[in-house]
Design a protein around this nucleic acid. Structure first.
Length: 259
DNA sequence: AGGTATGTTAATTG
DNA sequence: GCAATTAACATACC
């Protein structure tokens, strides 16, 4: 599930519950979640430490502990659960704190990763991740430079983590819906005005969704997201929502106002 | 039973 | 050679 807004909420959740508690024990319940790292390396580095601060870049989460950073990627089904008694069914890594509370990293489908990294900035650089759209340093001019020369589908552009870090299938569709751009439009046929609209609208969407979800709310009714079903009425123009596949991903759009 | 799922990457194609 | 596309990954649920 998680894209940038959801990972932002996980980050806040982690900061609220898991910071400054002594890690008495680290339990890895399925080694496949660790990627290339060895279990002993992972558990040894974190045991006895405590998480002191958190960071997020796109869909990537980092928490400082001692000299290392815990890096989590939530894949398609990752989630966090802070609890006292009931360990979640799909917990893959559990941090047992000294005060008898626990934080579980759950991931049913195992596309996620839990690992250590010495430096989040270096990680982002080495991975070639693009800027976080909500970073105050991120400018329209940066965005223009990053998309220059690209020819693929508009949707592929927004979903590329090298262009921008954090947009996935859902918010790519939502951004294109609100800027009236067809998901298959070639990137080199997006006008400068549309590029600016994407830049502004995308960030507004991310901020709005974070705020709404933080208060336990749902998506605005004029958004595409609550109408992600073929045959639904478009809340902007009254057209019909269509379902198709773009770059192997299920895509919803309004064939009347998205061109 | 089969298709589907809000992600990433390795492999393949153009 | 580089950019764009596709296949593969693992698992539960409708």
């Amino acid at each position: 599930m998680p894209e940038l807004p959801e990972v932002e909420l996980y980050t806040r959740y982690f900061a609220e519950h898991a910071l400054h508690r002594r890690i008495a024990r680290v339990r890895v319940l399925d080694d496949r979640i660790l990627g290339a790292q060895r279990r002993a390396t992972f558990t040894r580095a974190l045991t006895g430490k405590s998480f002191t601060r958190v960071r997020r870049h796109g869909k990537h989460f980092f928490a400082a502990a001692g000299a290392q950073w815990l890096h989590l990627h939530f894949g398609m089904s990752g989630d966090l659960s802070f609890y006292r008694d009931e360990q979640p069914r799909f917990a893959r890594v559990v941090f047992d704190f000294a005060d008898a509370t626990h934080l579980a990293f759950e991931d049913m489908r195992l596309f996620g990763v839990a690992e250590l990294t010495p430096d989040p900035d270096a990680y982002v650089r080495e991975r070639g991740l693009g800027p976080d759209p909500l970073d105050p340093q991120f400018r329209l001019s940066d965005f223009r430079e990053r998309i220059a020369g690209r020819r693929g589908a508009a949707k592929a552009l927004l979903m590329s983590q090298e262009v921008l870090a954090g947009i996935g299938n859902l918010y790519a569709d939502e951004t294109l819906f609100q800027t009236a751009i067809h998901p298959r439009r070639p990137a080199d046929r997006i006008t400068p005005a549309e590029t600016k609209a994407i830049f502004t609208t995308m960030r507004k969407i991310l901020r709005t969704v974070i705020e709404r979800k933080a208060r336990g709310g749902s998506y605005p009714s004029r958004y595409l997201t609550p109408h992600r079903e073929a045959g639904e009425r478009c809340p902007r123009c009254g057209g019909t929502i269509e379902k198709t596949v773009v770059m192997t991903r299920t895509t919803y759009f309004c064939a009347r106002h998205q061109r």
